Amino acid sequence: MIFEGPYDPPDGALRLLNPGPAELVLNRRGSSVWKVRTEAGPYAVKVGYPSRTHAWTALAPAREAAVLRQLTHERIFSGEWEYGTWAAQPWRRGDSLYDRWAPCRKGEAQPDLGEALSCAAALSGLHGMGWVHGDVQPAHFLLGEPDGAFLIDLALSRGGRIPRSCDFPYRGCLVHYEAPEISAGVLDSGTATPTREADVYALGAALFISATGWRHVDYPDGASREDQRWAIVTRPHRPVNVPGVLGGLITRMLSRSPADRPTGAEVCETLSAAR
């Protein structure tokens, strides 16, 4: 059976949230995401289902809910439905890093070091709590909250106990941001181990593409995931043409050796000193 979506919030979510109007904001890769109004404020309801290429996407909402319950005291809801799981969490406002830096890609502005620092601080904060994100990409940093960037989409994160009913192996992330060791692991065995070092590499790749519009490694737009990963494993990253301190920092973050990359905290220190 081919699952396409979008799928409406299941009855279990509706009974718990008693929502008002709902707006579909995303439907791709096995997830329908709705913004719903509730008495407690707006919530994001994620409805997971098997995608054309992955069955684990059906379990992702419940897995993310299990992670969030260990990281926040907010009201997080989750449950099962006919084709997978669903979860609800408070809605996060803001623009993605990629959208916020659109003027940089047009040559109309320079990357904002304060915004880069805010993204690095969000990731470093997660690392400080003993977790790795595993799916760092520009769309997962939201800029606009009063306290700085907010890091979303934690379904692939590792660091605590996850119920067996919603757990699944780590099979890499969006390949455009994978570190070479992650791509190599997936090519070799189908799975990999997410790490803080790989998160930092992905942050470097996210900053680079947001500022320039270029992926960190060159491969054709229509390349298969396997070919993309081979390119990341075997080819050097593109020259980092971002000026100033940020360019030098991104170059270090994209080091092939995990040991040569700065930590998230060191990224924050460098950006703080440069502001």
Rank of each mutant, 00 (worst) to 15 (best):
G134M: 09
G134R: 09
D135T: 11
D135E: 05
D135S: 10
D135H: 13
D135A: 14
V136R: 04
V136C: 13
Q137T: 10
Q137E: 14
Q137Y: 00
P138Y: 07
P138A: 08
P138Q: 08
A139K: 12
A139M: 13
H140V: 12
H140I: 05
F141D: 04
L142A: 07
L142V: 10
L142I: 14
L142S: 01
L143K: 04
G144P: 07
G144K: 03
G144R: 02
G144L: 05
E145N: 10
E145F: 07
P146A: 01
P146S: 04
P146E: 03
D147K: 01
D147A: 08
D147V: 03
G148Q: 05
G148P: 06
G148M: 02
G148K: 05
G148V: 02
A149I: 01
A149F: 11
F150R: 12
F150A: 09
F150K: 14
F150C: 08
L151I: 04
L151K: 03
I152M: 06
I152A: 12
D153R: 07
D153N: 10
D153C: 13
L154F: 15
L154E: 13
L154W: 15
L154G: 12
A155Q: 13
A155F: 09
L156E: 13
L156K: 15
S157A: 15
S157E: 15
S157K: 12
R158M: 08
R158V: 09
R158T: 13
R158N: 12
G159R: 02
G159H: 04
G159P: 09
G159V: 09
G159M: 05
G159S: 09
G160A: 14
G160K: 01
R161N: 06
R161Y: 08
R161E: 15
I162F: 02
I162G: 08
I162M: 02
P163E: 01
P163T: 06
R164T: 06
R164D: 11
R164L: 12
R164P: 06
S165Y: 03
C166T: 07
D167W: 10
D167C: 02
F168M: 03
F168R: 00
F168N: 00
F168A: 04
Y170H: 07
R171L: 11
R171G: 10
R171K: 15
R171D: 13
G172Q: 05
G172W: 00
C173S: 15
C173F: 13
C173V: 06
C173R: 10
L174M: 06
V175P: 04
V175S: 11
